[in-house]
């Protein structure tokens, strides 16, 4: 199936399930006959380091890395990381970010040294991103994930929000099937609930700024 080229820069902190998320989306594309490639990050930053994964959809694409200014969407599983990869966003691109902040140890250390030091907040991130695009949506994926009963489904909540985008032509059925195949058996139901609630959150926070599927 030939679809419009579409580039998603996924970022977050090691341990948030970014590799699993890219597997699910890539697998969903494969099931729908859509060509996708990813540039992944494995290795050193297993936990607590910055991670980004490039996911590219399109027949002609060869580079697993998105060029600077080439991402249609930044999907950030952690708020600070959304800003950290801002150079990849194309002008007027979409940012879907988790409002959760994981404070880097470097920041915490600076709070010890300077009692007036303030944390960099999700609001700070949003304000800066709005200088590049007005299509910024933040959702509290951790709270949603906790509400379905497993904080580790945060990645699938974000996928739910992403999947509402009109430009992401991956059928619902393929996404659901890819989740069923890739997550542990006993976690299938909780992940499908997370997907649904992620979509719901998108309809209230994202679809007012970008075109969503019906």
């Amino acid at each position: 199936m030939t679809v419009k080229e579409f580039n998603i820069l996924m970022c977050g902190v090691g341990g948030q399930g970014l590799v699993m998320l890219s597997k699910v989306i890539g697998d969903a594309c494969a099931r729908a006959g859509i060509r996708a490639i990813t540039g992944e990050q494995h290795g050193l930053s297993q936990r607590s380091g910055s991670i980004n994964i490039h996911l590219r959809i399109g027949e002609q694409i060869r580079s697993p890395l998105i060029p600077v200014g080439g991402a249609d969407v930044i999907l950030a599983l952690e708020a600070l990381e959304a800003l950290r990869c801002v150079e990849y966003l194309r002008d007027d691109g979409i940012v879907i970010m988790n409002s959760r902040v994981q404070h880097p140890v470097w920041e915490t250390e600076s709070h010890v040294k300077d009692e007036k030091a303030k944390s960099f907040s999700a609001e700070d991130v949003k304000t800066r991103l709005l200088r590049v695009t007005d299509k910024v949506a933040a959702l509290n994926a951790l709270d949603i994930a906790k509400s379905v009963g497993n904080p580790l489904t945060e990645n699938i909540v974000m996928l739910g929000a992403l999947s509402t985008l009109e430009d992401l032509w991956v059928p619902e059925g393929a996404v659901v099937e890819a989740i069923r195949i890739n997550v542990p058996k006993k976690a299938i139901d909780v992940n499908l609930r997370a997907l649904k609630l992620g979509k719901g959150a998108a309809h209230s926070d994202l679809c007012n700024v970008v075109k969503c599927k019906e």
Binding site: V13, G14, S45, G49, L80, H103, P104, W106
Partner: peptide
């Protein structure tokens, strides 16, 4: 923006 170097889990 605070740096996030890889660190111990």
């Amino acid at each position: 923006l605070p740096e996030r170097w890889p660190t111990f889990c």
